[in-house]
Design a protein around this nucleic acid. Structure first.
Lengths: 112, 112
DNA sequence: TTATATGCATAAGAATATTATGTATATTTG
DNA sequence: CAAATATACATAATATTCTTATGCATATAA
């Protein structure tokens, strides 16, 4: 992915969340969407994205539909039911992660 | 570290921030401090911590002072000036990371 | 006296990402 | 019109970071 090492481990969460919003997306579209949303801050590399998509598919979280558009292939991915559930889990984990880090970084905060 | 994969990449930020608050700390103390702050949510493993401390020392961000307490060794680490500067950078990166992820996760937000 | 806590360390392996390629078509630019 | 850039997928080699498993040693609690 990009610059700060903190993004390590976030890719699956990002993919699942985007698919949860957009119904179906193809790989290249995901890279462009993230670049646009983050004003170029975060650039997902193909070497990370495609293997991640394949793994999510193998795990049954995504399903694929191949289409030919403008004489070029597109592999559209969409969440399975299992993928939708996992999305909820991943988003909860992200919120927990953020809260935990806030507590460590801001000594005035504390967890209940 | 622990459970959610999101913590990957966060260890250095955590170490630097804790040392920035506490002046000097030793390894075991760091693991206990994090466990206490996060109510057990996050457990830093020794296999991750000690190599990280050694690396930060090798990079000149930390300096060491060995002390014998109760007949047991303690290696106290404290930030160098370079380490203090890097702490600021790492905390900024954490805030950026959190903002970026919020934008991706919450479609109603956007970056300026 | 046996387990747990304190305190350090490293090696093997897993997981995740970067960098570098490769293939192919479409479109923009000089 | 040729060359560069954009679109679209893919994988292999390498780097980075962490988990798990060990190992050593002393102190304290059960």
């Amino acid at each position: 992915m990009a610059n700060s090492k903190l993004y390590k481990g976030s890719l699956v969460t990002i993919i699942l969340k985007l698919l949860n919003e957009s119904d179906k997306m193809y790989g290249y579209e995901i890279t462009q969407k993230v670049k646009a949303l983050t004003k170029g801050e975060l650039k997902i590399t193909e070497g990370a994205l495609y293997p991640a998509l394949h793994k999510l598919e193998a795990e049954g979280l995504l399903e694929v539909e191949v289409k030919k558009v403008d004489n070029r292939l597109r592999k559209y991915y969409r969440l399975t039911e299992k993928g939708s559930k996992e999305t909820v889990t991943k988003l909860q984990e992200l919120q927990e992660y953020i809260m935990t880090m806030q507590v460590i970084v801001n000594p005035k905060l504390s967890l209940e």
